[in-house]
């Protein structure tokens, strides 16, 4: 592969990924509305297109044609920059996600690290948006988001460190390769870490909190803070926040799939693996995320922080210690497999 084809490849992937992120966000909204509709004994959108399938397109056109209002007293630079700060890191994270063995924009050895580096920028976008809005509700929301994200990044990273200790690599594709069938998925790999399912649950809870999803959606607690950090945003400003949120959900569930559920690998040896497995696993997890949202009421900020500092962090530290001990006592063959 020479340099120029590599560039074309990357551009093609980037265009594809942005399209994927945008379409995905649009259709996740449709899915969310359908899921919540059925959970609530309704049928959800059905008027625009068959099964309401064109509804997201209509919504997208509506958002794009709407004027982006710039309320007086906002900080014009921060206010405009914030939605991009939320969306761009989320799209960038897609670059290293292996959809299948070859379907990955750029395979790098520190892929996992890169995803987390970009994920941390997300919270900056929320903070900037909330602060720049010059709205008290938005400022409260931004403050909540920051404390929440800081609190949940710790157990999440400890869990990830545990996983890196087991896998011995930060290359996402290699991690997937190590889990060729369901018995060797890391969520069930008790020989490496006796608390593996717990680690998975911690990771899942943390990714819910990191993406501000219910029951941890304190940043946009609509009965308290109207719409939180995006209260003042209209049109595509709001649309970008929305896309960013859903892109982050996809990133979070993709990582959970890659780290714990075998990524694009098939659960059973006689069915070939591929991108369809990856998407199926990701969408199943996304469905769980929605299921949780439409079932549980919201926690309070204090309850949320207590959960992180008093429960999740000690458990994840215990998990780290146990895993370290296990690895010392009975090293896995080949450092990983």
């Amino acid at each position: 592969m020479n340099a120029s084809t590599e560039v074309y490849r990357l551009i093609a992937f980037l265009v594809g990924l942005i399209a994927f992120a945008a379409l995905n966000a649009a259709y996740l909204v449709w899915l969310e509305r359908k899921v919540c509709g059925h959970i609530q004994r309704r049928i959800g959108p059905k008027e625009v297109g068959p099964y309401g399938l064109l509804q997201p397109i209509a919504d997208g056109i509506k958002l794009m044609t709407k004027q982006v209002m710039l309320p007086p007293q906002v900080d014009p630079v921060l206010f405009r920059i914030a939605p991009a700060l939320v969306l761009i890191p989320a799209v960038m994270s897609f670059v290293v996600i292996p959809f299948s063995e070859n379907l990955v924009a750029r395979e790098i050895n520190v892929g996992l690290l890169m995803v987390f580096a970009f994920a941390s920028v997300n919270v900056l976008g929320l903070l900037v948006g909330g602060w720049g809005s010059a709205n008290k509700y938005a400022v409260i929301s931004a403050a909540r988001c920051v404390s929440q994200n800081v609190a949940y990044e710790i157990p999440m990273l400890i869990t990830v460190i545990t996983m890196v200790m087991i896998t011995g690599t930060m290359n996402l594709n290699e991690i997937v390769m190590q889990q060729p069938d369901i018995t060797r998925w890391y969520v069930f790999r008790f020989t490496a870490s006796p608390l593996a399912p717990v680690a998975f649950i911690i990771f899942f809870i943390c990714s819910l909190a990191e993406t501000n999803r219910a029951p941890f959606d304190l940043g946009e607690a609509e009965s308290e803070l109207i719409a939180g950090f995006h209260t003042e945003y209209s049109g595509m400003g709001f649309g970008l926040f929305f896309m960013g949120e859903y892109a982050n959900i996809v990133i979070g569930t993709s990582l959970a799939t890659i780290l714990f559920l075998g990524g694009w690998q098939s659960p059973v040896p006689f069915i070939p693996g591929g991108w369809w497995w990856f998407l199926a696993k990701v969408y199943f997890l996304i469905f769980c995320v929605m299921w949780i949202r439409w079932t549980y009421p919201r926690t309070t900020l204090w309850g949320l922080l207590n959960l992180s500092w008093k429960i999740l962090i000690p458990i994840s530290l215990l998990n780290l210690l146990l895993t370290g001990g296990m690895l010392k006592l009975m090293p896995l063959a080949g450092g990983a497999g």
Binding site: Q40, S223, T295, P297, R298
Partner: peptide, 16 residues
């Protein structure tokens, strides 16, 4: 009330 606490679904059952 449950809606105030962030749970949307019970509202629709109650309305039903």
């Amino acid at each position: 009330f449950v809606l105030d606490l962030g749970g949307f679904t019970p509202l629709l059952y109650a309305f039903d």
